[in-house]
Write a protein that binds this DNA or RNA. Structure first.
Lengths: 315, 315
DNA sequence: CAAATAATATAGCATAATGCTATGTTAATT
DNA sequence: AATTAACATAGCATTATGCTATATTATTTG
């Protein structure tokens, strides 16, 4: 003898409308439909829900109480409806993004801000990691998409990859650094300064080694390591240390914090890209996030390249 | 493209049970039934509700949100269920009782206390009136049952009537009254005292007139009128005034407040009874109230009569 | 890695619920 | 008494829901 929540909803609609005909109109149903549902309910409860023989339909005490539960049900159902349509349109939901620390802090977080400005109902859960862990997390389903510098050839077949920025590193220093104002530099000039490094397993650490190798510096002094980007920038800005950073990260910083030295260094073979596991099974919000990212970077990528040409390569 | 609240309920049951099979067991349904409902919902939403190809069934984010609405619906439906069964068993609801002021205050309210002690979820709304208004209120449906002294022959055909107490009036005074200790009285002895009267339209006012007429007092002094029972008792207790009251009212008062004088007076032709309009359409709570009343009075009626025989009629 | 296990998905069918229109009744109003 | 507007009922078509039997499949076990 179970009550169907739909019937309670209908009951509340009738009570609130003050009659069956109006209630039927409100619900987009026919009047006989409601009439029968009320009659069935009355039969099953063994109690009348409306005073018989009164024309402005008058709900029984029991009916009033059931109707108030019906209102709760109506609200919850509507809420579910809204959630579903918001979700389906990609305007609600959440995205779990992971990525390498420097890029996440230095570039992606700013883009995420723009994304959240446009889609305020979407929640972003951010976490950090390097390539292998990221791919593992994607496969385990603990993150939805990753931002990571990768060599396109190294991306496993089951993982989707979309390039968003070319890999372009620079040597960066604080804007008050003695080398910061020089228009051209010789390699010898930089060898006297200490270096800030990333953790040993990170791509940027490898990049730093490669750069210094290529310009003949095999023995270098590390003055600071282990900090996240904000610490690194503070240390750069307040000391004479140098470091290797993606130009895009330097580019996204506010003026007068850090600058890129006008020294050509090798491109890393990696390109920054977005990774995902199975685009088809992603929720609309997650697809929307990936779409937004690749679209925004289409513009940023050009702007960054252009600026870098002007500032460092001076072509 | 409306969502059925029942489906949300089912969804929440599946999520909470951690799988369809257990969810089906919890709901008392078959597993294929739930499986199909989930599949239909997914088809209609165009979004999957459980991660595909994972065996400990893992709800999608959308699913989790819909399930939480489903929980609201489940709770409200259960609540409605409880309300209905409480109501149907007569353990919940309300009764609107009206009656003549002296009886309501002097007798019925005490019985109502006992009723509420036994059925604490039942609400009683009390109001006051005399016969004609009471019957009118019954017909208008603004009260459910009335307690009123009536001549059984005067009850309209469409109104139900159940006798609960015979009409037995006494002359009452405060327990400190000079006449209170006398074992027998002559009529002349009472003629010197002033009288407390009910409103002119009330049965007890008529009874008072009849009593005094019958013992040859045509001209009597009214010292107080218009108060409800508590006022009347206070005035009786603190003055030498007399009044006519139903013996049942005197009987129900605490000792040492008012007493009945040992003078036989005429029985009013009215009998105290309960009135109702259409017993069939009454809710169980209201029927229960009427049943309780008539049952309680079956006992009280005898006790009152017995006491009255001892105290006044001394047979 | 194959077999076993337990869960979910699908198929097929019977029944119940729901929808509608047409029409009958009835309470309130004119 | 006639009119009106609302509710109730009947009849029929469609959809939803229930079940059992069975196929698939993810996970666990040997």
């Amino acid at each position: 003898m179970l009550i169907d929540p739909k019937h309670l909803h209908i009951l509340s609609a009738i009570v609130d409308a003050g009659g069956m005909s109006q209630g039927a109109r409100d619900l987009g149903k026919s009047q006989p439909s409601l009439s029968r549902i009320v009659a069935d309910l009355e039969a099953r409860l063994g109690e009348s829900l409306f005073e018989k023989g009164r024309r402005p339909l008058q709900p029984t005490e029991l009916c009033t109480r059931l109707a108030s539960e019906g209102r709760v049900i109506a609200r919850a159902t509507q809420q579910a409806q809204d959630i579903a349509s918001q979700f389906i349109s990609g305007h609600a939901g959440s995205v779990r993004v992971a990525g390498t620390p420097i890029f996440m802090d230095g570039v992606i977080s700013t883009i995420i801000a723009g994304f959240q400005d446009e889609f305020p109902e979407l929640r972003v859960d951010q976490s950090y990691g390097y390539a292998e862990e990221l791919i593992e997390a994607l496969r385990a389903g603990t993150v939805d998409t990753c931002v990571c510098p990768m060599e396109p050839g190294d991306v496993p077949d089951d993982i989707g990859f979309q390039r968003i920025l070319k890999g372009r590193n620079v040597i960066a220093c604080g804007s008050a650094h003695p080398l910061a104002r020089k228009k051209s530099l010789r390699l010898e000039e930089i060898s006297e300064f200490p270096w800030i490094t990333q953790p040993a397993g990170s791509p940027l650490y490898q990049d730093l080694r490669d750069v210094l190798d290529s310009i003949g510096i095999s023995d270098f002094k590390v003055s600071y390591s282990g900090g996240t980007l904000s610490s690194i920038i503070n240390v750069l800005a307040g000391s004479k240390a140098l470091t290797v950073l993606p130009f895009s990260v330097v580019y996204m910083q506010p003026k007068n914090t850090i600058v890129a030295l006008p020294i050509r260094i090798e491109h890393p073979k990696r390109e920054l890209g977005m990774l995902w596991n199975d685009m088809e099974s992603q929720s609309p919000a997650k697809r929307r996030f990936i779409r937004y990212m690749t679209k925004r970077f289409a513009g940023i990528s050009q702007a960054v390249a252009e600026r870098q040409r002007q500032e460092i390569w001076r072509e």
